[in-house]
Write a protein that binds this DNA or RNA. Structure first.
Length: 261
DNA sequence: CGTATCCTGACC
DNA sequence: GGTCAGGATACG
């Protein structure tokens, strides 16, 4: 499920469910969650109140009034499910956050790759991340500078969260298709004009949360996914078949006819 | 740089 | 049974 637009939506849902509420109980339902958090850390959260729910890239931060932070990353398949403490647990619930008002926020994840960690005051919960797509300081020339020392093809580099936070495998392919740039084009070789169109395409395809402040985009066409998963089907621009290749272990979909290096 | 790894489920 | 999966990281 989750790239930036889906995580943005999830963070909103969590915010509506949890903001201002006080934790009554946190339960881990799958041992994979123990990779980043200990039961004592979780028990110590009881009684804390959620002061804010933020998204940064694909990361979610539940900021507590006392300055601690709960960090959640959905990885490939995580999502929130909101319910009440006496509801049946959703299938594949991996952790639950229960609040004193009876709200239950469940982390559901069929693959159990999601991570949850607790950070004390002064302990930064986030890894090194590039700018948000919506950051006005992100410009074609700043992007060019960020790519200057990168050797390989552009598509895998776009997945590096230190370049632009929140770009994932689907929308990387989509943005390259929209800007007619080959996924195999050299990252450091792209000139500012082409990066301007790539950046515009990324902001467009990543949805409202990725747009520059104050800019609207009217139509959310159903053709938002133009290439991903469409190997062999006709390109929506030139009708030639879409190709699938593997780069850095991930699928890339593109049109070898109208996307050029 | 590429590859393996963490997990489970869907699909061929 | 094998392959693939919208992510990230640890390795060689």
């Amino acid at each position: 499920m989750p790239e930036l637009p889906e995580v943005e939506r999830a963070a909103r849902i969590a915010r509506r469910a949890a903001l201002g509420k006080t934790l009554a109980r946190i339960t881990l339902l799958h041992p994979s969650l123990l990779r980043r958090v200990t039961p004592p850390q979780l028990h110590a959260l009881v009684g804390a109140t959620v002061a804010g729910v933020l998204r940064r890239g694909k990361h979610q931060l539940l900021e507590l009034e006392d300055g601690r932070t709960i960090h959640v990353h959905f990885r490939m398949a995580g999502d929130w499910h909101i319910g009440r403490v006496d509801d049946d647990l959703p299938r594949q619930a991996r952790a639950t956050l229960e609040f004193t008002d009876g709200t239950r926020v469940s982390l559901v994840d069929p693959r159990a790759l999601s991570t949850l960690s607790v950070h004390e005051v002064g302990d930064s919960p986030l890894p090194e991340l590039g700018p948000e797509p919506s950051d006005p300081a992100l410009t074609p020339s700043s992007l060019r500078a960020a790519l200057a020392r990168r050797n390989g093809p552009i598509k895998p580099v776009l997945l590096d969260q230190r370049i632009i936070a929140g770009v994932g495998n689907i929308y990387a392919s989509e943005a390259l298709w929209r800007s007619r740039i080959s996924p195999r084009a050299s990252a450091s070789g792209l000139r500012t004009a082409r990066l301007a169109s790539l950046l515009a395409a990324l902001r467009d395809v990543l949805g409202p949360a990725a747009r520059l402040p104050g800019r609207y985009k009217a139509a959310r066409d159903s053709a938002r996914i133009a290439v991903y998963g469409r190997a062999g089907k006709p390109c929506r621009r030139c009708s030639r078949p879409i190709s699938r290749i593997v780069q850095a272990g991930r699928s890339t979909f593109f049109c070898s006819s109208c996307q050029r290096s």
